[in-house]
Design a protein around this nucleic acid. Sequence first.
DNA 1: GAGCACTGC
Length: 800
Amino acid sequence: MSNGNDRWSALKGDSQGSDGGRRYGGYNKQYNRKGYGSRQSGLEGRYNSGDRYQLKTEDGEVLRGSQSSSDRRFSNRVIETKPRWSRFNDSSKDRAALGEEPLVLRKDLDVADGKGERNPHTGRNFSRNYYQLLELRKKLPIYNHRDEVLKIVGENKFVVLVGDTGSGKTTQVPQILSMKYGKENNKLIACTQPRRIAAVTVAQRVAEEMDVRLGDEVGYSIRYEDETSSRTILKYCTDGLLLRESVTDPLFSKYSMIIIDEAHERTISTDILMGMLKQVVFEREDFRLVVMSATLDAEKLQKYFNNAPLISIPGRMFPVDIKYLEEPVEDYLRATIEAVSQIHREEAAGDILVFLNGEDEISTAVKDLEESLRNVPGEGHASGVHVLPLFSSLPSNAIQKVFQDPPPNKRKIVLATNVAETSITIDGIVYVVDPGFAKQKVYNPRNRVESLQVAPVSAASAVQRSGRAGRTRAGITYRLYTEDAFESLTAMTYPEILRSNLNSVVLQLRTLSMNPVQFDFLDPPPPETVMRALECLLYLGALDQTGQVTKFGKAMSVFPLDPELSRTLLAAPDLGVAQEVLAIVAMVSAAPNCFVRPLNKAREADQAKRRFEAEESDHLTLLNVYTEYMIHNSSSQQWCWENFLNERALQSAAKAKEQLERLLEQQGYSTKSKRIGFDYYGQSIAIRKAITQGNFMFSAVECKRATYLTTKDNVEVKLHPSSGVRTRPTWLIYNELVITTKAFIRTVTQVEGSWLLESSPNYFTPDHFTNDVVSYEIAKLTGERKKSRSAMNTNLRQAY
DNA sequence: GAGCACTGC
């Protein structure tokens, strides 16, 4: 394998069936660690959220929660704790994904057409490595379907191909097709992936399998990295990157064929690409589209692509036994600890992967397990356990640890968020413990507020999780809910496009002169969402009142940013603060959570953060972090560690800034900041004016002491405690509204009301705002400006 | 005065 042995990768040779970690909430209920499917009456009401349950192991030992006194209080209600796992039921939906395909080895020499020893790409003899890999490829289920793939793709312009984990579709199908279509009319084949790391590792693997150098015949292209050349016939890339290419080349004229992989993940980019490419197929004689997906939604895709033919490839992996609880549990975190403990004591050697819901929960569970099991010998692991956390904001070296072998005779236990579901693949996992929950972004269209909620996963997600146990040998998955509960799960995760703000997408479609209301979506988003985006783009000056893209809007569409940030960026050069705003926009878009705050070092982390704070603006705080980071670039790892900063986040902000700067320059803007001398306030004002230019719709006004009203929807909010703004401004701009224990606004900046007015006189008129406080404050600013927003809306509606 | 699942251009 070319992949090395301790890196994190989405893929190793094969494709993964997966559902992308994007979950639809749709559930308004908070689950509070209550196990999925647990009874909704009886015991529930008598327990306060802080209470813990005792759990008794089979041999009568009592595992205590953190509050032993309260445990005793409830000792008469100790729950029968030995989970009674029911056996895996053959009729379960999972079986299809886990089926094994008999191996049939063929004698002939593979896709190189049986012509013998010479590599048609390089003219050289195939290497020994090529033949070794070829033997592995012959064992993939896809191998015996090569002729079928070539034939059906040859006869059709749309093809849907489904195959589960282990089918080999991601590496083999593009390879097979590139032999025939990769040089057609001097055009190449692109294969999209939802994740950067997948695009890179798959390209590496395929280059090796084809015995060519990466970047020659086979390459990849992701943001900031282009490993392709004029020789390239097969390019793996992220879906978002290919979508961006449509801005300069709407007909995708470089490509003879595009293969969309992991379509079931339904990222926004994949959904928009599918709609665009469907059109391209009708407009270009010489273009084909192949859509690859996990099995569950094949029919829907076929129908969408004009009843496209279906190629179905079986998956192949080691069998995974699924165990369910016979009774729902009351506290899934306790049940998880108990399940892990039981596996460790009773089950044969092998690592355990546990899915939990966030850093907080993971840290608690790591501590619990270390205390209870560290030196407790288990089956096959005489010295106890080695417990590791895994979530995406963990420093890279901590992430690396999950790939390393544990100390001798210790069982490795990884407690992970759903990064481990698709993005990070850990080999050697034998046991998976799945409580059946994930944190999911929920969008409330009524007040237009997004929040994160814990909700049951989809069935597709549960299947994906259980598959993590069968990668290197047969495994067992323990689902901490009943089989009935599994049956009641939503089949697929709700597509991202139906629960997101579409401002950026709508601008891009308009730039290509497409009508977003009539766009052929696989799942059309609510028309209100599209209208809202049009309205927002109108206020930002990206569209005119007839819905046409303005010159300014065209410039905005060039940046890989939300339109609000694009406008902020474009406002900066005139204000003489291009460099500062480039850094801030890069930080907001690429490193929004750059501050690390581990629970056990919260105070030190807060202190470290305070050193960067600007009292009038959290955006300026981000600028300070960025500036300091660039100064300490040579020793950044150490420096980030000492200052409780996420180095990977800052690295990506630095790259983003470079790219944005280039794009700004290309459009003829000066990216130099004017020398304001040592006029700190002049500079601060200029920067905050630029921020106002783009984000005036995210403004709030103080309505009572320490409480603000958002102008957009009259949500009463408080400053998030993480904010460093201490000036108690009347007006402010916020970057994010989060609802947790209360409604908070995060990353805020003090602004003047007059700046808001300058940024969009059409938006800030008193009669736009239903709330008296907001109208009154705006009236104070505007005098008697009256321009009806409803009139503007009427114009917009007529335009579509 | 408190909590941030996960991607991507």
